[in-house]
Amino acid sequence: MKMYLVSLAVGLLVGALYYLLNVKSPAPPLVALCGLLGIVIGEQLIPVIKNLIS
């Protein structure tokens, strides 16, 4: 759980720095989030399928 909180805190800090420096995110936020969601689902889906087959 601590890892998730640290990740969230760092993300918020980077977002605040982007805002203060008037820098745009390198990727469109929705596209980046969809990509990350796909990575997480793919990473979790294979072990679940292996357990269902076994």
Rank of each mutant, 00 (worst) to 15 (best):
G15K: 03
L30K: 14
G38P: 03
N22M: 13
G38C: 11
V6M: 08
V40P: 00
K24L: 14
I41Y: 03
C34G: 13
V31E: 13
L17A: 10
V40D: 00
G35Y: 06
E43A: 09
E43W: 13
I46R: 12
K24N: 15
I53M: 10
P26N: 12
L8S: 01
L5M: 12
I39R: 02
S54W: 04
V23D: 08
L5C: 07
L37Y: 05
Y4F: 12
S25D: 14
V6Q: 07
I53L: 12
I46F: 12
L30Q: 14
V40S: 01
L52C: 05
Y18C: 11
I41H: 01
L20Y: 08
G35I: 02
L30Y: 12
K50F: 01
V31W: 13
G15M: 01
I39G: 01
L8T: 00
I39E: 05
L8I: 02
L30I: 15
I41R: 02
L36H: 02
L13H: 03
A16L: 13
V23C: 09
A27C: 12
A16R: 09
L8K: 01
L52M: 09
V40F: 02
L8V: 03
K50A: 02
S7G: 06
V6C: 03
L13I: 15
L30G: 09
L36Y: 04
L33C: 10
L30T: 15
A27F: 15
K2R: 14
G35W: 06
P47S: 09
M1I: 03
S25W: 08
E43P: 00
V31R: 13
I53H: 08
G11F: 11
N51F: 08
I41E: 00
I41A: 04
M3P: 03
S7Q: 04
P26A: 11
K50I: 03
Y19W: 15
L37D: 04
I41P: 00
K50M: 02
L45M: 11
P47D: 06
A16G: 11
C34K: 14
L12A: 14
L37H: 02
S54R: 14
K24F: 10
G15P: 00
G15R: 01
Q44H: 03
L8P: 00
G42W: 04
A9T: 10
Y19H: 15
L36P: 00
L45V: 10
G15T: 05
A9V: 09
A16K: 06
I41T: 07
I53P: 00
L45A: 12
V48P: 01
I46Y: 13
A32S: 08
L33S: 12
M3F: 12
M3H: 13
L17V: 14
P26Y: 08
V31Q: 13
L12N: 06
L12D: 04
L21S: 05
G38H: 07
I53T: 09
G35K: 05
L5G: 06
Y4Q: 09
L13F: 11
I41C: 02
L36K: 02
A27R: 15
G15A: 04
G15D: 01
I39K: 05
A9Q: 07
L37I: 09
V31F: 12
G11W: 07
L37E: 06
L52N: 07
V23Q: 14
P28L: 12
Y19M: 11
A9I: 10
M1K: 01
L45T: 07
L8M: 05
G11R: 08
Y19E: 14
P28M: 13
L37S: 09
M1W: 01
